[in-house]
Design a protein around this nucleic acid. Sequence first.
RNA 1: GGAGGGGUGGGAGAGUGGCUAAAUCCAGCAGACUGUAAAUCUGCCCGCUUCGGCGUACGGUGGUUCGAAUCCACCCCCCUCCA
Length: 374
Amino acid sequence: MTAFGFTVHATDGAARTGVISTQRGEIRTPAFMPVGTAGTVKAMFPEDVRATGADILLGNTYHLMLRPGAERIAALGGLHRFMNWPRPILTDSGGYQVMSLSSLRKLTEEGVSFASHIDGARYLLTPERSVEIQCLLGADIQMQLDECPAIPIEHDKAAASMRLSLRWAERSKRAFEERATPGQALFGIVQGANYEDLRLESLEKLMAIGFPGYSIGGLAVGEGREEMFRVLDFAAPHMDKAKPRYLMGVGKPGDIVGAVARGVDMFDCVLPTRAGRHGQAWTNEGPITITNARFAVDPEPLNAASDCPASRDYSKAYLHHLFKAGEYLGAMLLTWHNLHYYQQLMAELRAAINAARLADYIAEFRARTGERIL
RNA sequence: GGAGGGGUGGGAGAGUGGCUAAAUCCAGCAGACUGUAAAUCUGCCCGCUUCGGCGUACGGUGGUUCGAAUCCACCCCCCUCCA
């Protein structure tokens, strides 16, 4: 049994490369984790996800507890076996659904009660139950239940929310220590919206509780890139350098590049998969919408030099046609391509940090994509 | 030749006197998507526009009416059945 651990290999400014060790394998950081909410990275075979370069996937407490149910997955051998992904899995706690399903839930000190979006049945998700579910799933890295409020939010509301998440962090850790098996890890989540005093209070108290990794939650929720980077600028330097830092739910390639430069080690985002299903593809020159009329007769692939079949072996005209015709393969190919693009980006960032030339890489990235990265 | 039904915006198809530049769907054009209630959602979609409007428009012509896609007359075309 490999104990959970994190080793930093190289640094370049605030950025660093490293490896997270888990019982199911190593995670090269900075890492991008494809999102497999309901036990599948939508429109992808697990082996193809791995082939893009993913070391770890994200799964979801809320969706899996509703269907097929955490106990059933446990009875079937756990989530890894269930979805045929033998490598590490990180599970979200359901905290994001506190925001995204705000119309279907009720928040109390005890926890969150949801009316299932599937059949309306009521479920109570407490910090303890969330940990229990994540243990039943067999998640290698678990998240504490938290409240993820959208920005803008008034200071006093953000403070109350952040402190509730802190109390839930303590309860989550207690439950985790009772239940988890060796090799699993539970991360605490820093909240506090875009208020420096709240973020620092959250960080300090979370570190006092003590976690093997710290997530930054409640960003990319409406504040914009510049504001998100401002929060990272004042929060990241205070985070434990020896522990992985996970920026939850982020983001666009430009967001990731900027956050890596500020010392973030882990990311997840639905964007490459969702946008891929919706016809958007990231290229070295930035994102394109494959359904645009100009691609109808474009014989070039998305990236002729790529080692990803989806990027290299199909013309834009063909991809355009698949989307216009509503064919599944279009969504499959663009998802595949986008996931590969993201993993390629992470590999390039790691290589740049290891070579101590991240600033050059970012300048080059900005020049070719036109992205604004402060 | 007779009887009946019908011709509406790129397509399908509502509408049967004013609330109609005309529902809805599709096609088309563009945009959004950040710890996934998302193979989803939003906007545009006759022309011109200084975005307030202006012009033209529901097979054709003429008429009734303050007002017609809607009522009347004739004409043209399409479909079904009978001969």
